[in-house]
Design a protein around this nucleic acid. Structure first.
Lengths: 155, 155
DNA sequence: AGCACGTTTCAGTAATTCTTGAAATACCTG
DNA sequence: CAGGTATTTCAAGAATTACTGAAACGTGCT
């Protein structure tokens, strides 16, 4: 991998890692972002990053599961290719509302736990309302982006 | 801390930790969510969670810096009180767009690095566009929530 | 100013998470 | 179906991160 690409991969991956993604997964994802559109094989990723095949396997499994990358195998080929496109990335953002929903379930329990404390109850309910709002609006926001984008690109 | 509150704190904190927040900070924040409105002292937090004062100090520093909690000291008091309210939480969400902006700077470098690859360039630009869209729209979304909320509560 | 109490810093330890080599498994080709 | 290659699993070591006790530092009261 050329130096410029490598610099991007490390920098972008660091950002992702700080945002909570596993480090290796971050690097693999970043590498795929600057890769040719037909993607990279596990071996190519391992070589580019200088890590083991095992690490790549773990990372690709995680990234595939969360929908950030896609695994494809051309029939009659012996290797998987991993790739990411803008759409996948966006869909993954959508999936995130599942986390918000889980949090809201916990907040409901918090309301019960703090039932004796009006101030706490109000605060928790406010937070619940905000999360509910996000769960509702975020998919809408993404949908709107898709719409605008398709209008521009004509796709 | 009563068992119900404790259960909430552990469960909610786990969610936050999985979303990328430091574990201790997550627990402290969760504890403050179900605390009385005037907040808790560092000692109270430490006792409630069964952790050291040092850990609480580190966590409160982090949470204060990121805007998720507020430190107050009543004049003539000798102790700080830490508290969180719905508004702070929302403002912290706004701040997050800083991370998106940083990512977009990296993506710009990625475009340069992959200039020889039309497919990669398109993919990176698409991601950039999406981030730019979010940077633009997220604050708007939060603003809209504030507006709706104030209309309902009359505050 | 001195005291008492609360908070922060720091360096060592503990715990967790990451990474890997090696073995096991799956899969395509001939 | 045998051979070869790619991928996954797993256990162990490495690296990172989290947590704490102790000491230093601040701050308000008397």
């Amino acid at each position: 991998m050329d130096p410029q690409r490598a610099a991007f991969v490390e920098g972008f991956a660091l950002q992702l890692a700080q945002a909570g993604m596993q480090r290796m997964a971050s690097r693999v994802f970043a590498a795929l972002l600057v890769a040719p559109s037909d993607g990279l094989t596990a071996r190519e990723i391992a070589d580019a990053l200088g890590v083991s095949a095992a690490s790549v396997s773990t990372a690709t499994t995680y990234l595939t599961r969360t929908g950030l990358i896609e695994r494809t195998r051309v029939p009659g080929e012996r290797v998987d290719r991993y790739a990411t496109d803008g759409t996948r990335w966006v869909e993954a953002t959508l999936v995130e509302t599942q986390n918000l929903a889980t949090m809201n379930e916990w907040l409901a329990r918090g309301v019960d736990a703090a039932a004796d404390d009006p101030g706490a109850v109000e605060r928790l309910r406010e937070t619940q309302d905000f999360f509910a709002y996000l769960i509702d609006e975020l998919p809408r926001l993404v949908e709107r982006w898709r719409h605008e984008r398709s209008a521009v690109s004509g796709r």
